[in-house]
C-alpha cells in the first residue's frame, strides 16, 4: 500500500472539503440559512469556468503562457460562484429573512432554487459532462516516496492560499468584522448598525466564491455536469456538521479527519464503502459532541 499516495489524496480532499465546508459553515452561522443551493452554485461555477476557459483558449497570450489559462479559469469559477451566491441571497434570504420560521423556509427556498437552477443548467449545457483544461501545468515533485503531481499540488496550494486570504480578510477588514459580528450575535450586530441585508450579500458572495473555487479544483478529478453539485454539497454539509456549524477551525479539523477516512477507506475497503464509513464516523462524532467537534454546546444561534 502506497502511504504517500494515501496521504496526498487525503490532504487534497481535505483542502477541497474544507473550502466547501467553511462556506456552508459561514453561511449558517452568520445568516442562519442552510444553503441547499450550494450544490447548484458549485455546478454553475463549474460551467462558468468551463465556458470562460473555452473562450480564453483562443487568445494569443494564453497560448504562450499555459498557466495563465489556469488562473483565468479559476478566476472565472470564483466570479461565477460569487454571482450565483448573490442571486441565491437575493431570492432566498432578502425576502424572508425577517419572517417567521425563516430557517425552514430558507432551507426549502434554497432547495427550490437548486431544483430550478439544475434544470436550467441541464437545458443550457446538456447532460454531458464537460472537462476543464489542466489548470496547473504538468509537473511532478517527489519527497522520498511521496510524489506530488501537478493537479494535487496545485489544488492544495490554491485552496490553502485562497482560504488563508479569505480568513485573513475575515479577521482584518471592516467587512470581515461585520460578518464575524453577525456570526456571534446577529441581533446585536443589527443593533449596532450592521446592515443585515448588506452583510448577507457579502457573505453569500464570499461563500459562493469559495464554492466556485472548490468546483474548479474538484473538476480536476470529477467533471463539470449539472448534477455534479450534489455529492460535494453532501460532503461539505457533513464536514461542516461534523466540525460544528459556525466554526472555521472545526471545519478544518473535520475536513482533515474525513479526508483521511476517505483516502484510507478507498484504498483498503473499496470506493463503495466510503460513504458508509464516513457516516458511521460522523454519527459517532456527533453522538459524542452533538454540535460538532468545535461547535458551541449551548444554543448558539437563536435568532
Amino acid at each position: 500500500m502506497d502511504f504517500g499516495f494515501i496521504f496526498i489524496t487525503a490532504i487534497t480532499l481535505a483542502c477541497i472539503y474544507g473550502t466547501l465546508a467553511i462556506g456552508i459553515s459561514i453561511t449558517w452561522s452568520s445568516l442562519g440559512l442552510v444553503n441547499m443551493a450550494y450544490g447548484f452554485t458549485f455546478s454553475a461555477a463549474g460551467f462558468g469556468a468551463w465556458y470562460v476557459g473555452r473562450l480564453a483558449q483562443d487568445l494569443p497570450l494564453v497560448a504562450d503562457y499555459p498557466l495563465l489559462l489556469g488562473a483565468i479559469v479559476i478566476a472565472a469559477g470564483i466570479v461565477t460562484g460569487a454571482l450565483v451566491g448573490v442571486m441565491v441571497c437575493a431570492l432566498a434570504f432578502i425576502p424572508i429573512h425577517d419572517k417567521p420560521e425563516f430557517t425552514v423556509r430558507g432551507l426549502i427556498a434554497t432547495l427550490a432554487i437548486s431544483l430550478i437552477g439544475t434544470q436550467v443548467l441541464l437545458y443550457m449545457f446538456g447532460p454531458r459532462a464537460k472537462p476543464l483544461p489542466t489548470l496547473f501545468g504538468d509537473w511532478k515533485v517527489s519527497f522520498g516516496d511521496i510524489v506530488i503531481t501537478a493537479d494535487k499540488g496545485g489544488s492544495i496550494m490554491a485552496s490553502i492560499v485562497l482560504l488563508t486570504l479569505t480568513l485573513r480578510w475575515m479577521t482584518h477588514s471592516r467587512r470581515g468584522l461585520e460578518i464575524r459580528a453577525m456570526m456571534m450575535n446577529p441581533h446585536a450586530a443589527s443593533l449596532v448598525g450592521i446592515g443585515v441585508r448588506r452583510t448577507g450579500f457579502y457573505v453569500m458572495a464570499l461563500t459562493g466564491g469559495l464554492a466556485g473555487l472548490a468546483s474548479v479544483l474538484l473538476s480536476q478529478t470529477y467533471f463539470v455536469s449539472p448534477f455534479a453539485g450534489l455529492t460535494p454539497l453532501i460532503k461539505g454539509l457533513s464536514v461542516a456538521l461534523c466540525g460544528g456549524l459556525g466554526s472555521v477551525q472545526g471545519a478544518v479539523i473535520a475536513a482533515v479527519i474525513l479526508g483521511f477516512n476517505e483516502a484510507l477507506t478507498a484504498s483498503f475497503l473499496g470506493g463503495q464503502y466510503v460513504l458508509i464509513t464516513q457516516f458511521l464516523l460522523i454519527i459517532a462524532i456527533i453522538l459524542v459532541r452533538p454540535r460538532g467537534i468545535a461547535g458551541i454546546l449551548d444554543r448558539a444561534r437563536e435568532a
Binding site: W28, T103, I234, S238, I286, P290
Partner: peptide, 15 residues
C-alpha cells in the same frame, strides 16, 4: 436538534 438532524438524514439518504 433541528437542522443538524436534517443534514444528517439527507446524508443517510445519499448513503
Amino acid at each position: 436538534d433541528g437542522f443538524y438532524y436534517a443534514l444528517l438524514t439527507l446524508g443517510l439518504n445519499e448513503l
